[in-house]
Design a protein around this nucleic acid. Structure first.
Length: 741
DNA sequence: TGGGGTCCT
DNA sequence: AGGACCC
């Protein structure tokens, strides 16, 4: 029944000790030796170890805590700003060891260190291990041999070394101490990380898994089994982990679906194949305020206003542009203590954040506030009495590309904000014809052909947000580098890229003296001494000064011609990308069979093109389904890279970074409209390629065909004012590349 | 019990 | 929009 156990991975779970309290102690070292508690409202959320030793535990009421210890120092931890900051620094440190880092809350991180083990295996002593071993009686017990024989012993010993180095680096960078658990899966690593408590680490060898699991008793203590499942299990007579191990799948089936039943069973045996999913930047940014009672609209409004103001600051730090606003309330309800929240959401007009998220004007604030109240009124009938206990607002569905593509985006998006805006608004309203309008309205100013291509390329690179850098979904699509390499399959794309470069680079730069993106970036530079903005630029600076020698730095596998033609900043990014991911570490299986069916409506890059641009996704359709109006602005905002952990005695070998940690909330729909009707590909054009192109481009191709057919006699067939000579050239150059070979 | 988050349905 | 889970 049980397959041979799989101990191939080494997972480290890191858990900061009494996180909030530690952060406060780092901020004010004089608190170190005093009993300290961090509270939120009436609840004590954490206490430091001094306080704990004096009887003040977690999750106590403030009242109780003060009764137990009148000298307790209390700090209000309702504002998570500092914790958030520290938390990202910790994750950033872990990420210098491996990019496979998953955050869980603010104080926990999983790291899959399997791939970096080689770098540490030699350094580690096969008979000694860092930290504690689960099941040992004393700190430096002799290690057992290898009852397993699969090599896991060695790997875990190396893993323990890695864990120790990570913890050292975290302390060095942030002053925060952590516990760590090292095991062959996430479940086990997590279960074991807290075994020896402050500032220690423990390794679990596979042969003690049963002992560990059986020691747990209640099923509730298995992460993944929450209160609801726990209750259901109880109803089935399953109370302990052992019960769960012995329960029949048939019994579980009576209450759970197939997958859940299997998962439960596996968990009870310590089996867990869940991957460490890279955490990107948050999918939602929200704020809550809880209280005993609010029953007047005025108070509601003022609470929301405060929340909104704070939220806009967070949004500014984040830099991305949200596309939906969510408002939430919790109504007083004696019965349900939990879950009685209601929420409503609404799309945000992209024009609201037209000038980025950096300087939100009064109008935007007012509009947002109106929307908040509108949503609120959908949930609460204020003509009657009401009793609320919580209000919250949040932004979701961010529009962005991976931050490492930022300068690439800037290259592609030298167009006026107003153009995008208009399109976005129109898209949002579903006004299909509007795209035509903007198409002709602006093309006299801007080279529309280029414009279309930009949009087109953007739509391709937008799917990249899921790629290696950003993606918690490692199914990721290709990023720019991938587009440029993997040569002949993608000749079309490469040539389009070339075309773009060749025809446009000149006028693109003249067109808009200062783009909004540039504005935002410099804005960002000014406005903070905060590490965020520097993170993205400094590695590039290093790099460009390091190897300036032209051709020699063309990465292997990239078309040299294309590469040389790219702007230096993009070259740098590509090189950086290459350096961080040397020769194809983990080839991603490419099957064309599983290609997700994407409704044509939501994606300009249809399935046909996906074949060329994207790797197959495991869970494809989910992201694809999300449609988000495109916005051209993207803010540089790699998570802060620790500046002070520079010295590298214990630093990880090589590997380092891997770009930013981005994830976009949705894959964008790209250019403005989808074709209201399908155009027929002209003769000589591959129909699958043709149909995959954005409608704008299709249209141009068709029109060009038409023109060339009636060519010699009538040179101005088109009644579109947008047709300039320049455009025609550009257009015909596309044809060369799209025609069947 | 707070003030956050994640993903799935 | 809500529910489950996590901290």
């Amino acid at each position: 029944m049980l397959l041979p156990a799989d101990h191939r991975r080494v997972i480290i779970h890191l858990d900061a000790d009494c996180f909030y309290a530690q952060v406060e102690m780092v901020r004010d070292p004089s608190l170190r030796d005093k009993p300290l508690g961090v509270k939120q409202k009436n609840l004590m959320v954490t206490s430091n170890y001094v306080a704990r030793s004096m009887g003040v535990k977690k999750s106590m009421w403030i009242k109780e805590a003060l009764e137990a210890l009148p000298d307790l120092i209390l700090i209000d931890g309702s504002d998570l700003t500092h914790y958030r900051q520290c938390s990202s620094e910790i994750s950033a440190v872990v990420r210098t060891f491996t990019v496979d880092v998953e955050r869980l809350g603010l104080d926990e991180n999983f790291a899959d260190v399997t791939e970096i083990l080689e770098d540490y295996i030699e350094e580690s002593d096969p008979n000694k291990i860092e930290g504690r071993v689960y099941g040992d009686k004393e700190p430096d017990e002799t290690l057992p041999g290898d009852p397993c024989g699969c090599g896991c012993r060695e790997r875990l010993i190396a893993g323990a070394l890695v864990a120790k180095k990570i913890r050292q680096q975290i302390v060095k960078a942030t002053g925060i101490t952590c516990c760590a658990g090292v095991a062959h899966n996430k479940l086990l690593a997590k279960l074991v990380s807290g075994y020896y408590k402050p500032n220690q680490q423990t390794v679990l060898f596979p042969w003690l898994v049963h002992q560990l699991m059986n020691s747990l008793n209640l099923t509730r203590s298995i992460p993944g089994i929450g209160s609801t499942m726990y209750k259901t299990l109880e109803e089935l007579g399953i109370h302990t982990v052992k019960d769960l191990q012995n329960s029949s799948l048939a019994l579980l089936h009576s209450k759970f679906d197939d997958e859940t039943s299997k998962r439960l069973r596996d968990l009870s045996f310590g089996i867990d194949d869940a991957p460490v999913r890279r955490s990107g930047r948050p999918q939602t940014i929200g704020l809550e305020d809880a209280f005993r009672k609010v029953n007047s609209i005025d108070v509601v409004q003022s609470k929301y206003l405060t929340l909104l103001e704070r939220l806009l600051k967070l949004l500014k730090e984040d830099g991305r542009i949200p596309s939906t606003l969510r408002v939430c309330v919790r109504k007083f309800d004696t019965k349900k203590k939990f879950g009685n929240r209601e929420s409503r959401q609404t799309p945000i007009l992209p024009s609201l954040f037209a000038s980025g998220v950096q300087n939100v004007g009064e109008n935007t604030r007012a509009t947002l506030m109106n929307q908040v109240m509108e949503l609120f009124h959908k949930m609460v009938d204020t003509s009657k009495e009401f009793h609320l206990t919580l209000l919250s607002i949040g932004f979701t569905k961010f529009i962005e590309r991976a931050s490492h593509e930022n300068s690439i985006s800037r290259f592609f998006f030298k167009r006026k904000r107003s153009e995008t805006e208009e399109q976005d608004i129109n898209e949002e309203k579903g006004e299909k014809s509007a795209h035509l309008k903007s198409f002709s309205t602006f093309s006299s100013v801007n080279n529309s052909k280029i414009h279309s291509l930009e949009l087109y390329l953007e739509s391709c690179s937008e799917s990249d947000s899921y790629s290696s850098e950003g993606g918690r979904n490692n199914q990721g699509s290709m990023n720019i580098k991938d587009m440029l390499s993997k040569s002949h399959n993608h000749s079309i794309e490469r040539k389009i890229l070339k075309t773009l470069k060749g025809n446009s680079s000149n006028n693109m730069h003249k067109q808009t003296s200062v783009t909004n993106n540039e504005a935002s970036v410099s804005n960002c530079d000014q406005n903070n001494g905060d590490s965020n903005c520097h993170a993205a630029s400094s590695p590039l600076e290093d790099l460009s000064s390091a190897d300036k020698d032209g051709i020699a730095r063309v990465p292997h596998g990239i078309d040299e011609e294309v590469f040389q033609a790219l702007p230096p900043e993009i070259q740098d990014e590509i090189i950086l990308d290459y350096k961080s991911k040397p020769p194809d570490p983990k080839p991603v299986p490419k099957s064309t069979t599983g290609s997700p069916k994407i409704p044509f409506k939501v994606k300009t890059t249809s399935a046909t093109l996906d074949k060329y641009f994207k790797r197959d996704s495991v869970r494809g359709p989910r992201e694809a389904r999300e449609t988000v109006p495109k916005i051209s602005s993207t803010e540089t905002n790699a998570e802060s890279v620790i500046s002070h952990h520079s010295s590298n005695e214990a630093a990880p070998p090589e590997r380092k970074e891997d770009g930013g940690e981005d994830k976009s909330a949705a894959s964008g729909s790209s250019s403005s409209g989808l074709s209201p009707s399908t155009l027929q590909p002209p003769d000589g054009v591959d129909s699958s390629v043709f149909s995959a192109l954005p409608w704008e481009i299709q249209k141009e191709i068709v029109e060009e065909q038409r023109r060339s057919l009636s060519s010699s006699s009538a040179s101005r067939v088109s009644n579109s004012p947008s047709y300039s000579g320049r455009r025609r050239e550009a257009s015909s150059s596309i044809m060369k590349y799209i025609k069947k070979v």
